[in-house]
Design a protein around this nucleic acid. Structure first.
Length: 591
RNA sequence: GGGGCUGUAGCUCAGUUGGUUAGAGUGCCGGUCUGUCACACCGGAGGCCGCGGGUUCGAGUCCCGUCAGCCCCGCCA
């Protein structure tokens, strides 16, 4: 490894291999920066120590050529040392140079000068092998490797067994769209790629693998985001005879070890909020607690208001909630309008605001406010109130979005650099289109205190579920699971599944639960997000070797692609609109 | 499915109100150069202005459509 060499190696004769990173030809003297995974070492080529063939070979080299150099490690002359460079005290005096493989002039540069911008992301993905030669991406992937290794060692040490589960699985009726895989042997029938190993790991519990872990690849056919890829990696685990605190403690221990590897601070035990507290104080189920700004409920204070709009909202069960920003009055009208835009985008009809001033205040809300209201909100001169009124389902997401925006607008100081948080007791169900949906998935164990309300007030039932949140990013999600087949049937029927559907779709799970299933629970952590957030990288693409584009394409190899009619026929598949399926990705080198 | 931003030389970008022959840096090619390290200097090649249509005497520039990349909403049990 080139960059592990230093002055102590001076005088060593050896052979080095690597890529030509850059060439500086001074005429009589010529320098090559030789690169490998470890870094860069300067190779100097000159008539005093290089063969005529070596000189000639060096003159013909270009960026990214692969070479083998025979020579000797030497201390650089005092005045030619480069303190900016890890190997800047030494150089490699080449005797002979052998070109192992010529590189075409790279379409995107691997070398990046101090003021060079990165090439466009489309090109970086199209020529991913070149992009991956850059030190930054190499370090990201190496950190990822070390984090996975840390996790595997950690779980091995505390008695977990890694078990692989199938990639060809059964389609799931709820949740994300499945990637489907046609069966050749059974034309017209399909496997699905797993959205997670959820059911398999529960079945492993019934099989007696009481501590299971897997670095599992998962697939969801949904639209992408900067923090969402269609295939991703989870640290997936499940254990029998556990309480939530067991899982939380294990994960806190894991995160402390992984964070240490990445140079991130994580000091268990982590903060805990119930879901209800998180929604009340931050309007979000994954609040970023690097800032301590909280929402307030001023419904009581405004119950006597003359503002008809507030009166009618309060009268219909809505609440008046908002943020108080010390010194926020310095925000301009225009900046506040931008915050209103943020609130509207998050579903609020608007945002009421008031600036506190010596004259009594200004802004649309201020005209409805008397001294009692100012006292109740605690706002004084120079402060800003941002208020939303309505049902919690509207004000929470709106004010959460405003909270984030105003933190940026006012550049509020962080109270901590690394904010770890558990969010507990999520509702078991949510309601949409007049029916129930599982909030997390249908296997979450209801909170024992709420069990008696399951059938007549299901929306009030909490689950024994927990999310791990780091700096406002959801890193993991888990729960205790239902192990009683009767309870599981009840929950599936609440979700609208008939007895027949239940048997057809989940019969194998229910059968396993009826075979002597231990109480069990687990969690799944988003491996890609952990690496991304530990690095502070802007996108998951920076921590995945071969990511997909936002349109779920792999542009390096060019997937997906249309397939030949005959291949489809073998699978019993006919295309409805063959022309539509044939547009798009073209093979890269169609020879 | 919807909204937004971007697309000009291999790469990163500039290009005025629509007006002559579309520029810069870098890379590439050729040359000079013995201590460079973003080497320096001299010379050169390199353009379907993403693609298609429209408006106009005239379009890189305006309009419509489309493709690609990115960000967001929906979606992500």
């Amino acid at each position: 490894m080139l960059a592990t060499l230093d002055a102590s190696n001076a005088g060593d004769a050896c052979t080095l291999v690597g890529w030509v990173h850059r060439r500086r030809d001074l005429g009589g003297l010529l320098f090559l920066d030789l690169r490998d995974r470890s870094g860069i070492l300067q190779v100097s080529v000159g008539p005093a120590w290089s063969s005529a063939e070596g000189l000639a070979a060096a003159q013909g080299l270009g960026a990214e050529d692969v070479v083998r150099v025979r020579g000797e490690i030497a201390l650089r002359p005092e005045e030619a040392r480069n303190p900016e460079m890890a190997t800047g005290d030494i150089e490699f005096r080449a005797h002979d140079i052998e070109l192992l493989n010529r590189a075409a002039t790279p379409p995107i540069p691997v070398f990046r000068g101090p003021e060079d911008e990165l090439p466009g992301e489309d090109l970086r993905l199209r020529y991913r092998n070149l992009d991956l030669r850059r030190r930054e991406l190499q370090e990201n992937l190496i950190l990822r490797h070390r984090l996975i290794l840390t996790a595997r060692n950690y779980f091995d040490r505390i008695g977990f067994v890694e078990v692989e589960t199938p990639i060809l699985t059964k389609p799931t009726p709820e949740g994300a769209r499945d990637y489907l895989v046609p069966s050749r042997v059974h034309p017209g029938e399909f496997y699905a790629l797993p959205q997670s190993p959820q059911i398999y790991k529960q079945i492993l519990m019934t099989a007696g693998f009481d501590r299971y872990v897997q670095i599992a690849r998962c697939f969801r056919d949904e639209d992408l985001r900067a923090d969402r890829q269609p295939e991703f990696t989870q640290i997936d685990l499940e254990a029998s005879f556990v309480e939530p605190d067991d899982i939380l403690a294990w994960i806190e221990g894991l995160m402390a070890e992984m964070a240490a590897v990445a140079g991130v601070e994580a000091h268990p035990p982590f903060a805990r909020l119930t879901w209800a507290e998180a929604m009340e104080r931050y309007g979000s189920d994954r609040p970023d607690l690097r800032w301590d700004l909280e929402l307030h409920d001023w419904t009581a204070a405004f119950s006597d208001t003359d503002a008809e709009i507030l009166q009618s909202i309060i009268g219909s069960g809505g609440r008046v909630r908002g943020l108080r920003l010390a010194g926020g009055a310095r925000l301009s009208r225009r900046q506040i309008e931008e915050l209103e835009g943020v609130a509207r985008k998050a579903g609020a009809p608007g945002l009421l605001w008031a600036k506190g001033s010596a004259e009594g205040g200004s802004g649309p809300l201020a005209r409805w406010m008397g001294p009692g209201h100012w006292d109740a909100t605690g706002a004084g001169e120079g402060d800003l109130l941002l208020v939303a009124a309505g049902p919690d389902g509207m004000t929470s997401p709106a004010l959460s979005a405003v909270r984030g925006a105003v933190i940026r607008a006012l550049e509020l100081p962080k109270v901590r650099e690394h904010a770890w948080l558990w969010v507990l007791d999520f509702p078991l169900f949510e309601e949409a289109d007049g029916r129930l949906y599982a909030n997390h998935h249908p296997f979450v164990l209801p909170h024992p205190d709420d069990l008696d309300r399951l059938e007549f007030d299901p929306l009030s039932v909490r689950g024994l579920a927990y999310d791990l949140v780091y700096n406002g990013s959801e890193l993991g999600s888990g729960s205790l699971r239902v192990h009683d087949p009767a309870l599981q049937r009840t929950i599936l029927s609440l979700l609208g599944l008939s007895a027949e559907e239940t048997e057809q779709k989940f019969g194998f799970l229910l059968e396993a639960l009826a075979s002597g299933a231990p109480p069990h629970g687990g969690i799944a952590l988003g491996m890609d997000r952990i690496v991304k957030d530990f690095l502070g990288a802007p996108s998951l693409r920076d921590v995945i070797a071969f990511p997909k584009t936002t349109a779920a394409r792999a542009t390096f190899e060019g997937a997906p692609v249309p397939v030949a009619e005959g291949d489809l026929a073998d699978l019993g598949i006919g295309l409805r609109e063959p022309t539509g399926a044939l547009k798009g990705a073209e093979p890269r080198d169609p020879e």
